[in-house]
Design a binder for these strands. Structure first.
Length: 393
DNA sequence: TCTGGGGTCCTGGGGCTA
DNA sequence: TCTGTAGCCCCAGGACCC
């Protein structure tokens, strides 16, 4: 059983990028909208054919040509079976009339800062988990709000009071996020991060779900293993082949047998997680481990025939990485490259420097050394440069 | 016409050293 | 001095996440 004394919230913004775009283009509300691809799909103004007022014209998914994928989609579009990471060309077959908008990360980051600041004003123990989600440790806040009373009665009702108080705080958080951004979010409340994350998905969008320790069997175990954060498509497929489809079946699997199939550490984690055990703290401060830049070409480039173009892009990536490092005030001791070939095979090479650097020429030189260690026989689809082992400057 | 970009974490192999 | 081994770091690849 997880430690029942903790109260952890997972707050997830609903279809975040799409919702930010709907604030900008309210006329698209209720429609299938897909975000992704390059910047070519900018909406444009056109004069009405009947001579009326100019109107905004949006790109349609059916007209898309290229290699982009869906970053996110409105719930109306998702109903047609399109999802994040699906190729746009494939999505166009499912819902050709969907509106296609380009991503605008500056705008999403702006709203990300707004909702996080709003939450922190009420509950300061916040762990950043990306642009659209956070964990919040509400333990102390809940304890402070519980009114001390008769000891025996307090003990009797402590559990229900705790979750009742947590629920009130969560409703406050949802309101403050809406006030600050105009956007809705979903919150999961639980004794740990793992269950809170699953809970936040249960009543999306604009949801609030509570899973307490005694409810784990009833509410967690019937769910498919894929719902566990950390079990991706590969692990889920392997578990399926071994006859394990639900979280409950995983929870009851023999740990030694799991270890034989998934390795000791991975098996222990999966077994604990399925049983609702997760003592990871809410981490309020963290430093980045690496910073990278990569690009996928419009067409696969030949290492010899397209050498000039490849060299130019390579140098640009190094310069961009250098400026990212300088802006974020880090120097890197490990420079690496990443190549993806036309057959989708990916290779990486790393190089450790004598002294950390944030200098573009030095990064370019080290990345060039890495590149010499790769056999360049196939056409190249993607090129990337990475800075690891970061030190603050 | 498959499959982005920017990350984290884990595993396993190989080299080095105590 | 030789050998075995444990621990550590580096490197490469893979799974996963948003």
């Amino acid at each position: 059983m997880p430690d029942p004394s903790r109260v952890i919230a997972h707050l997830d913004m609903d279809a975040f990028y799409a919702s930010v775009e709907l604030l900008r283009y309210p006329e698209l509300r209720g429609m299938s909208v897909v975000i992704g691809g390059g910047s070519r799909q900018q909406p444009r103004w056109e004069n009405d054919a009947q001579g009326g007022a100019p109107r905004r014209v949006f790109a349609r998914l059916r007209d898309y040509v290229g290699r982009g994928v869906i970053t996110t989609a409105t719930y109306e579009a998702r109903a047609f079976g399109v999802n994040s990471a699906m190729g746009l060309m494939k999505a166009a077959k499912k819902v050709p009339d969907a509106i296609l908008l380009p991503t605008d990360f500056d705008e999403y980051r702006k709203y990300s800062r707004l909702f996080k600041a709003a939450v922190q004003a009420i509950a300061p123990q916040v762990e950043d988990r990306g642009i659209d989600e956070i964990y919040i440790d509400l333990t102390e806040l809940v304890a402070a709000r519980l009114t001390p009373g008769d000891e025996s009665e307090a003990r009797r009702t402590r559990e229900t009071d705790t979750w009742w108080s947590a629920r009130e705080i969560a409703l406050e958080l949802k309101l403050t996020v809406r006030d600050a951004t105009g956007l809705s979010c979903s919150i999961g409340l639980a004794p740990n991060k793992l269950i809170a994350k699953i809970a936040s998905e249960l009543n999306k969008p604009d949801g609030l779900a509570i899973i307490t320790a005694p409810e784990i069997e009833a509410r967690l175990w019937p769910l498919p293993v894929r719902r566990m954060h950390g079990v991706g498509p590969k692990s889920a497929a392997k578990l399926g082949r071994l006859g394990i489809a639900s979280i409950g079946e995983l929870a009851q699997a023999e740990p030694a047998w799991l270890a034989q199939n998934f390795g000791k550490a991975n098996a222990a984690w999966m077994h604990d997680a399925a049983n609702g055990r997760d003592d990871r703290p809410v981490v309020t401060l963290s430093e980045p481990k690496s910073i990278s830049r990569e690009t996928t070409f419009d067409r696969d480039l030949h290492p010899v025939h397209d050498r000039a173009q490849l060299t130019r892009i390579f140098s640009e990536l190094c310069a961009e990485l250098s400026s990212d490092l300088q802006r974020k005030q880090y120097a890197s001791k490990t420079i690496g490259i990443k190549l993806r070939f036309e057959n989708f095979k990916t290779v990486t090479r790393d190089s450790t420097l004598a002294t950390p650097t944030d200098d573009a020429a030095e990064i370019r030189r080290a990345a060039g050394e890495c590149l010499k260690r790769v056999e360049l026989e196939k056409r190249i689809r993607l090129l990337g440069v990475r800075a690891g082992s970061l030190l603050p400057t």
